[in-house]
């Protein structure tokens, strides 16, 4: 059974081709991480899977009635909007107080119901967004760079929480990241994206794949490697064929 499947999906934004012939499956209970440099189409792929961005060719199928919890990259709230945490969690469907209290306790933020969203720290905000995703009792949780802006302990704690949630609920997790080390450890499968799927497989297989190393370099944390990548993309694009690690 597949929860979400993309088959040969291509997407353009304006005049620019962002995704070319991308295929991807999400199975129940697995954690899949999409990694790729800035501008590689990671967020667009996630938004395409959600049905926010239309495809120009290929297709996206979601299991009928699939319950998806979506955690966006960040929530920029206008300061003129007074929004207590509990009210946010009740959008667009009203939730009982007990439900809200339970889910906030689950993500490690008990008792913040009346706090304004604008007063939360980055880590607290991510946990509230995860709580909102959990309220739909999701079969799949889709997250766009959920740990952006968190420090390393915060990031590690967030991924621990995520693994616990996965273990309890059995929900599949599909997340986008450009931060490799922590992500790699937590994932069942890693998809390396750069407009197209460069390589795919277990974290170990992917981190040893030549395509992955070409994209991110060896032993660096991404930022430097991304830069180099732009100059010699063409080579590795060709090199992507032939190596099927999936």
């Amino acid at each position: 059974m597949t929860l979400i499947e993309a088959e040969g999906v291509s997407v353009t934004l304006g005049a620019q081709s962002v995704l070319q012939d991308v295929s991807l499956k999400l199975h129940p209970g697995e954690i899949v991480t999409i990694v790729g440099p800035n501008g590689s189409g990671k967020s667009t792929l996630l938004r395409t899977l959600l049905g926010i961005v239309p495809v120009i060719s290929g297709r996206v199928t979601r299991k009928a009635g699939l319950r998806i919890g979506y955690v966006p990259q960040k929530l920029t709230l206008d300061p003129t909007l007074p929004l207590p945490v509990a009210r946010f969690l009740s959008l667009p469907r009203r939730q009982s107080r007990a439900n809200i209290a339970a889910v906030l306790a689950r993500v490690g933020l008990p008792g913040v119901e009346a706090r304004p969203m604008s007063g939360l720290s980055g880590g607290q905000m991510q946990r509230v967004l995860l709580a909102r995703a959990l309220l739909v009792k999701p079969e799949a949780i889709l997250m766009d760079e959920p740990t952006q802006g968190l420090d390393q302990p915060g990031e590690a704690a967030f991924y621990r929480l995520l693994e616990e949630v996965r273990a309890e609920t059995g929900a599949a997790v599909l997340m986008v990241s450009h931060d490799l080390h922590v992500v790699m450890a937590a994932s069942d499968r890693v998809v390396c994206l750069n407009g197209h799927v460069c390589c795919e497989g277990t974290p170990h297989v992917v981190s040893n794949a030549p395509e992955y190393r070409a994209l991110f370099g060896e032993g660096t944390r991404g930022a430097l490697a991304l830069y180099q990548h732009r100059h010699d993309h063409g080579h590795h694009h060709d090199g992507c064929e032939g190596h099927d690690h999936a």
């Binding site: 938004r47 926010i52 979506y70 966006p72 206008d78 909102r132």
Partner: peptide
């Protein structure tokens, strides 16, 4: 309206 104002992607995903 409120959810769309908070975040359009969240609204869309719902």
């Amino acid at each position: 309206l409120l959810l769309t104002t908070v975040n359009e992607d969240l609204a869309h995903a719902d």
